[in-house]
Amino acid sequence: MMAGSGEHFKALVRSHGSGDDDAFYSVALQVAAQAARRGHHNLATDLKAAVDNSRVERPQKVTSIAQPRGDLSDLVIASHPVVGLKELVLPDDLATQVRRILNEQRQRKQLLDYGFEPAHRILFEGPPGTGKTMTAAVLAQELSLPLMTIRLDSLMSKFMGETASKLRVIFEAVTDQRGVYLFDEFDALGGDRSGNDVGEARRILNSFLVFLENSSAESLVVAATNHRSILDKALFRRFDMVLNYSLPDTQQAAAVMRGRLGSLAKGVRWMSLEDEMFGLSHADLVRAAESAAKSAILAGSPGVTLDDIRDALMSRQAASLGR
């Protein structure tokens, strides 16, 4: 005869599906207790031992990606990035700010014990392709948290009530499920617009500001924008930190390309490519590196040549002028 009731088994499935280990173990121990009451002592002992062993084997809990459900499933795309801090090429001052965010999050309990919240409302601003989205992915990976990217196309509605209710769903998830919540291309929501929709835009923005102001420190809320100039000034004081991104200089550009090419780039004189790299974003440089690598591989070469890289960079320069 089965020791656990139907309700117990349903609770086990629900807690497993949501990634809630504590709830899962609690229900498992309830099943073990019920088994003991029914005289199934061996089963009860085995269940309790399995729970104890599992807890010992998994001392560090890594947040699993519980796929968004219900209303949230239409508003958020969940992922678990694999890109780490070592792969993020940023100016020293910006890299220091990113490490500060990570340090505060890793010691969040100590800060909270003293009545201080870790930085958890972050704004990234700067030109396209300069590493804003990648930084959000790095924060998620380094903190073993899911990256929850907000789908602004699903969030925005011509009806204020609908947008506000959707924002409420997202910020409730910020409290309930620890993660990095990314509002990419945030200017679509936070822009200081003019025209016939200014009243509606203002109400949506005010609603966001209220939710942001009261957002839980359990998660990080990250907003990224390419257009700082159009953002409402009321936004900036609501964020704990504002990180300003810019196009890479020559050394950073070379580091980006070296990181993507790896061993294929041995012996490349990067400083001779300064003019070709100038003005390109991180994303442009990565694509140029990938193009040069494919040219070398298809030609059967053990590595990329200076001409491979120069041709790829000039192609990206032409493409950027056409944007």
Rank of each mutant, 00 (worst) to 15 (best):
S5F: 08
G6V: 10
K10T: 10
S15Y: 13
H16K: 01
G17S: 08
S18I: 07
G19V: 10
F24H: 08
F24K: 04
Y25S: 00
S26N: 10
A28K: 01
A32K: 08
A33G: 02
A36P: 02
H41F: 08
L43E: 11
A49L: 13
A49G: 06
D52K: 11
N53S: 15
V56I: 13
E57C: 01
P59L: 03
Q60V: 13
A66F: 05
R69V: 13
G70W: 02
G70I: 00
G70D: 02
V76I: 14
V76D: 09
I77L: 15
S79Y: 00
V82I: 06
L88S: 04
L88D: 05
V89C: 04
L90E: 15
D93V: 11
A95C: 02
V98T: 01
R99A: 03
E104K: 07
R106L: 15
Q107A: 09
K109E: 14
P118I: 14
A119E: 06
H120D: 05
L123T: 08
L123A: 08
F124W: 01
P127H: 12
K132I: 14
K132P: 15
K132W: 15
T133E: 07
T133P: 06
M134Y: 13
A137Q: 14
V138Y: 02
L139V: 05
L139R: 07
A140N: 01
Q141C: 08
Q141E: 12
S144M: 12
L147P: 03
T149N: 06
L152P: 05
M156L: 13
K158W: 13
A164V: 15
V169M: 00
V169N: 02
F171C: 04
F171S: 04
V174S: 09
G179R: 04
F183T: 02
F186T: 03
F186H: 06
S194E: 15
E200H: 13
A201I: 06
R203F: 11
S207M: 10
V210C: 01
V222F: 02
N226C: 00
L231N: 04
D232E: 01
L235K: 07
F236I: 08
D240I: 04
M241G: 08
N244V: 14
L247V: 03
T250G: 11
T250V: 13
A253Y: 15
A253F: 14
A254V: 03
V256C: 05
G259V: 01
G262H: 09
L264T: 05
L264M: 12
G267C: 12
G267M: 15
R269L: 10
L273H: 07
E274F: 09
M277C: 07
H282L: 12
D284I: 11
R287T: 11
A288Q: 11
A289R: 08
A292M: 07
A293W: 11
A293H: 10
A293F: 12
V304P: 10
I309P: 09
R310D: 03
D311K: 15
M314G: 05
M314A: 03
A318T: 14
A318H: 13
S320N: 02
L321W: 10
R323P: 00
